[in-house]
């Protein structure tokens, strides 16, 4: 378990670094795919099988294909020259390390997790054993269409607005100009 976690975590971390540090846009996109696949493995470790499948299908499938398509279409051939980037990269790196250390400290300080590595507070009814007995997708679907119906509907509205907005933004503007 922890071997798989370590491996997937290292791959996800390297993928994240590759997104930011790659010189060519297409390498950034490939690093992001690597990161997302590693994240799907981590979701499987966290007993979230449906989220892992959606991660692969929607992110690594649809979203990244869209990214690669746009990169190929626009072909920003002249890649970012590192003219003043060194100072920025240094500042960004220092900020990232500081933020990670801060969150790590907050995670381990005994507020969220006690010294024995367990969360404080009462646990909910959805233990992995109970969820898997009922079916992971069934439980998620039950929750999505009962307790979380309003966020679900708002999301559908958001998707509609995004589709309309994308069509509006990407049509030809001949009659407007």
């Amino acid at each position: 378990m922890s071997v798989v976690f370590g491996l997937a975590a290292v791959i996800a971390f390297l993928g994240a670094l590759g997104v930011v540090l790659s010189q060519r846009t297409i390498y950034s996109a490939m690093s992001l795919v690597l990161n997302m696949v590693a994240l799907a493995v981590l979701f499987l470790l966290l007993d979230a099988q449906f989220i892992a499948a959606v991660q692969i299908i929607v992110y690594a499938g649809a979203v990244m294909v869209l990214f690669v398509f746009i990169i190929a279409l626009l072909s920003p051939g002249a890649e970012e020259r590192l003219r003043s980037v060194e100072l920025r990269l240094l500042l960004g790196g220092v900020g990232a390390v500081a933020f990670t250390l801060l969150i790590g400290r907050l995670t381990l300080n005994g507020i969220t997790v006690g010294a024995h590595g367990r969360l404080h507070g009462a646990l909910g009814p959805f233990s992995p054993v109970a969820v898997n007995a009922h079916g992971q997708v069934q439980t998620l679907g039950d929750q999505l269409f009962t307790t979380y119906l309003l966020p679900f509907e708002v999301t559908s509205l958001l998707l509609l607005v995004a589709a309309v907005g994308a069509v509006y933004l990407s049509r030809r503007r001949r009659q407007l100009a």
Binding site: F13, V19, T112
Partner: peptide
Amino acid sequence: GLFPGFLILSAAMFAIGAAGVLVRRNPIV
């Protein structure tokens, strides 16, 4: 025992992404 590991990885990824938003100039990146 892996719980802090997941959270720290999440924080590290968020920090790297935020640094990338601030540092990179290519809008696709």
